[in-house]
């Protein structure tokens, strides 16, 4: 993993300059203290000066009068799997949806703070939301393939954005995406069958393949295994481990074992607060905050 990141050394200064940060809280370094405000941050020396894929600063989300996210600041590093963890209703999914502006269409939702992708504020007025979602793909909680053929499902993104020239290139992208999602061998003979005919686990991998076809930089996953059986879950988890070789993954899960299996770092949410963040082992084995401890030991479910 280290080899993919060394080349980005020294980019922090540039990052600081390109951030269009309305609230002037642009210095990412100041957030790498062990404890700031209410968030316990585990020191992670190996990453101290590495570049960030995404970072968020003091994000607040209101749904009408409901203060769903209360000032969350967390970094996402390149080619890592970051797990957002916490009990249901803690705001982890809400936060995830903020990362690619999926909360935009929600009526009376208000998002404050900074969310930046490679130093660019994705909530900037000039930042087209299509670009955001193209660069930050997403896989939903329940598989949601379009009621079209498997081929059409994968080709949806490339066609939409004009990413390919001609049928052959498109075929190539479809095959490639399916291969990378580990689905090619299973479906190569039924590419023109409806995607909705596949099993739940296959549908979810189809959705991952669909996201890959857009060549995003980050893939967000919202409890991708919650509706799947253990075997399919296992397949998806293995897939996530593969995916991080080429993508950055942010995954929401309430399953601690899953977080332990797939993630490099964990951010623990509680009632809209980011409570504790750090390397997976550190957070789960050595939780500092009382709330994290209780969750990890199974007292909060």
């Amino acid at each position: 993993m280290t080899d993919t990141t060394t080349e980005m050394d020294g980019n922090v200064a540039e990052l600081r300059n390109t951030v269009r940060d309305p609230k002037g809280q642009g210095d990412p370094k100041s957030y790498r203290i062990s404890k700031d405000g209410e968030t316990t941050r585990h020191e992670d020396a190996a990453w101290a000066d590495k570049d960030l894929k995404m970072y968020t600063r003091d994000v607040h989300v209101h749904y009408g009068d409901n203060h769903a996210i209360k000032g969350v600041s967390v970094d996402v590093r390149p080619n890592e799997v970051l797990a957002l963890m916490g009990p249901s209703g803690c705001g982890k999914s809400t936060f995830l949806r903020c990362l690619n502006r999926m909360n935009d269409p929600v009526p009376n939702a208000r998002i404050d703070g900074t969310i930046a992708l490679e130093g660019e504020n994705i909530y900037d007025k000039d930042y087209d939301v299509v670009m955001v979602r193209l660069r930050i793909g997403m896989v939903a909680q329940a598989p949601n393939p379009f009621p079209k053929s498997i081929y059409e499902n994968i080709a949806f993104g490339p066609r939409l954005h004009g990413l390919t020239d001609g049928k052959e290139e498109l075929d190539e992208v479809v095959e490639n995406s399916l291969r990378r999602a580990g689905l090619w061998e299973e479906v190569k003979d039924q590419l023109h069958q409806p995607g909705t005919n596949l099993s739940g686990g296959q549908q979810q991998r189809l959705c991952i393949a669909r996201a890959i076809a857009n060549e995003p930089e980050v893939i967000l996953m919202d409890e991708p295994c919650s509706s799947l059986d253990p075997v399919s879950t296992n397949t998806i988890e293995e897939l996530i481990m593969e995916l991080k070789k080429s993508f950055t993954v942010v995954i929401v899960t309430h399953d601690m074992q899953q977080a332990e299996r797939v993630s490099d770092r964990v951010a623990y949410f509680h009632l809209g607060d980011l409570v504790e963040v750090g390397p997976t082992n550190a957070v789960i084995r050595d939780a500092q905050d009382q709330r994290t401890k209780e969750y990890v030991s199974g007292h909060i479910g």
Partner: peptide, 22 residues
Amino acid sequence: PDKLRNGAYSMGATHGETITRV
């Protein structure tokens, strides 16, 4: 179902494309 709309949005489809294509 809304999940299809969300699927299209998260693929980077605009509002109009979500309607016409999904």
